[in-house]
């Protein structure tokens, strides 16, 4: 009996216990190149959209950069080769980080008008603005509230947002300026958005990869947002955007555009609609890549940006005069809204 038991244990172990080991790429220029290409091939989530938008062929990218990696003998040069390969994805969420620095793809906003100047913004914010956890806000003379949310990297508390909305309580409308907001935490974006709803809303979907194939995705799961437990702002809101609105800020716009009494004006957002995840190469360099895409209510990706309701650029005349065309247009929109309301 004991012999049988021991024999069974031994056989079970021999039969079923193969080694589960990591990838077999070596820590050479070519090994790191192949490791990066394969990592993106298996985990990146926007191949179909990139192919449709600008004809990306990831296999062709491999063939283009492989000869460079084969002849590379220097880590600095390898970093540039790999960084350039990642730029072929045209995705601001895809980066390579090493001891030399981080590779970025910037064209998603650098090839577009800035549509924001902090010098011009000073003419509107003045010197008496308040600030709560990174959000600067003030009241314009015509009873319009103005809040500038520079980043979603700060973890807003309900108290922060309640205090801000309490201080703006006399305003008839709010201009919520998120231009140049490059993102941060989705949870912060959702917390801010939850201050503008009074009941739970369904605003989109999220999915993730279920396998290594380019089209292996889970079924889209609905995204809901519950109203804030603090103060809620139910008066008109105008959200100002430009091409530098990215990632969590793009997510914020995706929510806000589903709300009544909210208008988006300015330029298209920069996109970055997927939750990025991280991994590493054999040499320890870190890779960030888009992994879990979000979809809007029409099941459309917003990876390449969200168009505003009203497209406005800062004109060169206004730029010279220190006027922010987009803020001025937002004010006009609010006045028009109340004038129409009075007429009715």
């Amino acid at each position: 009996m004991p012999k049988k038991i021991l024999t069974y244990l031994f056989i079970t172990q021999i039969l079923f216990t193969g080694c589960i080991d990591g990838e077999e790429f070596d820590n050479s220029c070519n090994g790191n190149f192949e490791a990066l290409w394969q990592l993106i091939d298996e985990r990146y989530c926007f191949f179909a959209q990139a192919q449709e938008e600008f004809g990306l062929d990831w296999n062709a990218v491999h063939d283009k950069y492989k000869p460079m990696a084969d002849t590379c003998r220097d880590e600095l040069i390898l970093f540039d080769i790999l960084g350039d390969m990642l730029k072929e994805l045209r995705d601001g969420h895809v980066n390579l980080t090493s001891m030399f620095g981080t590779s970025y793809y910037w064209d998603w906003h650098l090839q577009h008008p800035m549509n924001f100047s902090d010098s011009i913004q000073r003419n509107y914010l003045g010197t008496n603005f308040r600030q709560t956890n990174g959000i600067k806000y003030t009241t314009f003379p015509d009873s319009i509230g103005y809040a500038y949310v520079e980043s979603f990297s700060n973890n807003f508390s309900i108290n922060n947002l309640t205090l801000m909305l309490y201080n703006l309580r006399e305003c008839k409308a709010l201009i919520l300026d998120i231009r140049n907001n490059g993102g941060g935490m989705i949870t912060s974006a959702e917390k801010l958005a939850s201050s503008f709803i009074n009941e739970e809303i369904h605003y989109g979907y999220m999915q993730h990869k279920t396998g290594k194939g380019h089209n292996d995705f889970s079924a889209p799961e609905p995204l809901y947002l519950e109203p804030s437990e603090g103060a809620r702002w139910l008066r008109p809101v105008v959200v100002l955007t430009n091409r530098s609105v990215y990632s969590a800020a793009n997510h914020f716009v995706m929510i806000m555009r589903e709300l009544p009494n909210v208008a988006i004006i300015g330029d298209s957002t920069g996109g970055g609609s997927a939750l990025p995840l991280n991994s590493t190469l054999p040499n320890g360099w870190r890779v960030r890549l888009s992994a879990c895409p979000t979809l809007d209510l029409k099941h459309q990706h917003t990876e390449f940006g969200i168009a505003p309701d009203i497209k406005v650029d800062i004109t060169s005349e206004d730029w010279e005069k220190g006027r922010d065309t987009i803020i001025e247009r937002a004010k006009t929109l609010i006045f028009d809204y109340y004038n129409k309301k009075e007429e009715q």
Partner: peptide, 27 residues
Amino acid sequence: QVDIPLAGVMFAPEFGQSYYEIFGLGH
């Protein structure tokens, strides 16, 4: 002493599933 697990259950997210989806969104 040798111990060999034969059957059980474990927490295992899907291939590209984020913990934000699991714990933040309840997916």
